[in-house]
Design a protein around this nucleic acid. Structure first.
Lengths: 197, 197
DNA sequence: GTCTATAGAGGGATAGAC
DNA sequence: GTCTATCCCTCTATAGAC
């Protein structure tokens, strides 16, 4: 069967992937067991291997799921404005909306790639695809603003700024610091947009 | 015995703590087993509980060990200059010196607190003491530069900048980005020192 | 296609011989 | 004070009943 099917097992797969993403975020990848996932997604523990070849395979699908979610988020931004400067400011809005989760658990992208970077480099390379989507988009906007060959490293700089904020805000459970830095980042995005190159 | 002793068991303790710090950094806390530590510090696995009550207890001592090391690093900086602006620039030098390790494994402070923040908040609070030492010191220097009540949040900002760089540089194994951002941070430290408040 | 049972390895922690 | 042996638990993964 080559066409997309919509069997019950497919919706189960989706439930498992969504539950796994939340658990990886809240507990870490290596600290999340099949039992945890089975309980959260409400299926028998042993069924896992009917849906996925291995835990690594699950991670790859979780990453793909999150990549799609990030792309959808960006599509919403792009529909809301066609001005590159305005579009970039949605990064600050994203930080505001995820504030409480970030203060409690850190950034789902940053903490996952950091964990996997220790001893699971292959999986880290998969997880980095989540960052790629954001960086590609920021880079494209900066390119429109005239930054040309500097756009990619500046995009990484912007994402790094955000990562630093999430790390310290969650280390100290400090929402006020997060708010303070969201303003700082909004200001830097505005400065980037207004400075002629 | 109330006076400090220097038995063989004390040097063994130190060996274990140093080995555990390296392993926690390279593998993560929860991914490091007693077997790993015993092998690295060359002592029998079962002896662990002669030296430490539990793995949590070991972590606390590892944090204290690292706190002392950071304090020693700062003492060297303070001896090398008495000018607050010059002193702050040692943060950039620190990044240069740890560059290769950071690109490979991330920041030992940031990745440890991020891991523990997921499900071991008590241990995270211990680990954050490592950040406290740096932030207190940066804050004191900014205070000398006239930032008064802003000095603490600006100190957190500076450390957050560094954290963001380590996260992205290690996610992408990108030394060039790290170098680029070390220059950025050096520039920001200089700006902070020169702007009158 | 769904589930139970369990294998096999490795984790933290303990008891007790020397 | 040092080390061996081992307990009990949980983990990933598999075999095979239904």
């Amino acid at each position: 069967m080559t066409t997309a099917s919509s069997k019950k097992s497919d919706t189960n797969r989706q439930k498992i992937i969504a539950a796994a993403f939340d658990l990886f975020y809240h507990q870490g990848f290596n600290q999340t067991s099949f039992s945890d996932i089975a309980e959260a997604a409400d299926f028998p523990r042993g069924n896992f291997y009917y849906y996925f070849k291995s835990k690594d395979e699950l991670l790859k699908e979780v990453v793909q799921y999150q990549v799609e979610r990030i792309k959808q988020m960006i599509e919403v931004w792009d529909r809301a404005s066609s001005d590159p400067a305005e579009r970039l400011l949605f990064l600050a809005k994203m930080m505001e909306e995820s504030r409480d989760d970030v203060v409690r658990y850190g950034c789902p992208l940053g903490t996952l790639t950091a964990e996997l970077g220790k001893t699971q480099l292959g999986l880290q390379q998969e997880a980095v695809h989540m960052f790629d989507v954001l960086i590609d988009w920021v880079s494209a906007r900066l390119n429109e603003l005239g930054y040309a060959d500097q756009s990619r490293i500046l995009a990484m700089h912007v994402i790094a700024r955000i990562q630093g904020v999430t790390t310290m805000a969650s280390a100290y459970s400090d929402s006020a610091f997060m708010d303070y830095e969201i303003d700082n980042i909004r200001a830097e995005l505005t400065r980037l947009a207004n400075r002629d190159q």
